[in-house]
Amino acid sequence: MFRAIYEYFKEILLAIRGLINGMRITGKYIAHARKEIITQEYPDNRDTLQMFDRFRGEVVLLHNENNEHRCTGCSACEVACPNGSIEIIWARREDPETGKKKKQIETFVYHLSMCTMCNLCILACPTDAIKMGHDFEHAVFDRSQLTKVLNRPGSKLEKGVEE
């Protein structure tokens, strides 16, 4: 009888202790909320937001200051891509200097809507022409805007890439 009463009150006191223990954790965090808050106010911190070097946002074709890229049109990335996100349209054109017919890219089409950022195209590229950009704000109002042409108008192949 007394044993049961003792057990009853012990149970209640232990439960209260457990509850207070939990409240101590949340209490500790609200007391130090200023220091502990982890929220980043995203659109406001755009200027200071620094992505990691290896962050994979989208595929970009690198151009240098003379509007030259390093893509020879070998289509290795197109083959490596598991989703068909890359389409390279190339043509054989006459080189104005040597007069020989040479393979050149017309358009480097990139379907961002299909890309899974798996990085396989970057690994496949023999001339390091493409890399993963850091831009992650891809939202657009129309799906067609997600199909991009990566080579800039009038851009040429950089010299010495093919050798």
Partner: peptide, 15 residues
């Protein structure tokens, strides 16, 4: 996730 992003390049689907 930060560790993954720095080393692997992505936070969730790291590949």
């Amino acid at each position: 996730n930060d560790i993954f992003e720095e080393t692997c390049g992505a936070r969730l689907t790291m590949n």
